[in-house]
Design a binder for these strands. Structure first.
Lengths: 108, 108
DNA sequence: TCTTGACACCTAGAAGCTCTAGACCTAGAG
DNA sequence: CTCTAGGTCTAGAGCTTCTAGGTGTCAAGA
């Protein structure tokens, strides 16, 4: 709720979640919800296309994992993805600082 | 640069700039650029439609001002706009906190 | 005088992302 | 057998921002 604010910010979030280690799409959604304490409760129709896009961009690499009996596509951060994540973290800092400046409330 | 991150966040920014007192569109763009130290350098084609939308929503009220020889439309925050701004500031705080949690870097 | 640049407003359509609303499949519990 | 949870996928809608123009005033300089 309250978050279609996420537009344009999804990529770094996904990349950051996958940073710790390989994860499949469904688990990425759960991890996003967990880490954000419920703020980001994203529909699959949002995340799966984003994962495909991120892979097309070369930031993620995927492979099928059938070891659990269930068909899962597991995503992993590439070197380029790691670089992109670092860049996006900086962009986020700049953005956050700029918004806070305009909104006032001293760093709020 | 680096900021189409702004998607979904423009409304509170505009509202906050007009909060101090009535301003016309062009001045709003300059003020946004100034307060964000250059981060938000928005094209007129972004801001004018946003102003119209915000007025349609009842958050801004406008009047023509011809006193300077130049034709200007001056915008002012309505009571509803003030309420909306307060709500959006809270949403921003929640969003910012959630992103920071997911991105890690302890509040970065 | 004519041109240039800043000021000031406007809009149609393109582009891009997220969401809705489905579809499909497996495994385990009741 | 049925239901729920896990797991993936996509077409198209919806919304916002940006592109790329158009219109017009005013002041300064060639």
């Amino acid at each position: 709720m309250g978050s279609d604010l996420i537009k344009g910010h999804l990529d770094p979030l996904v990349l950051a979640v996958v940073e710790q280690g390989p994860l499949h799409g469904y688990a990425i959604i759960e991890e996003l919800r967990r880490r954000s304490r419920g703020e980001f409760d994203l529909p699959e129709g949002t995340v799966y296309p984003a994962l495909h896009r991120l892979e097309r961009l070369g930031y993620l690499a995927s492979r099928w994992d059938d070891s659990q009996g269930r068909r899962r596509r597991v995503y992993e951060l590439t070197r380029a993805g790691r670089k992109a994540l670092a860049a996006k973290r900086n962009e986020w800092k700049a953005f956050r600082s700029a918004v806070s400046s305009v909104l006032g409330n001293a760093g709020g």
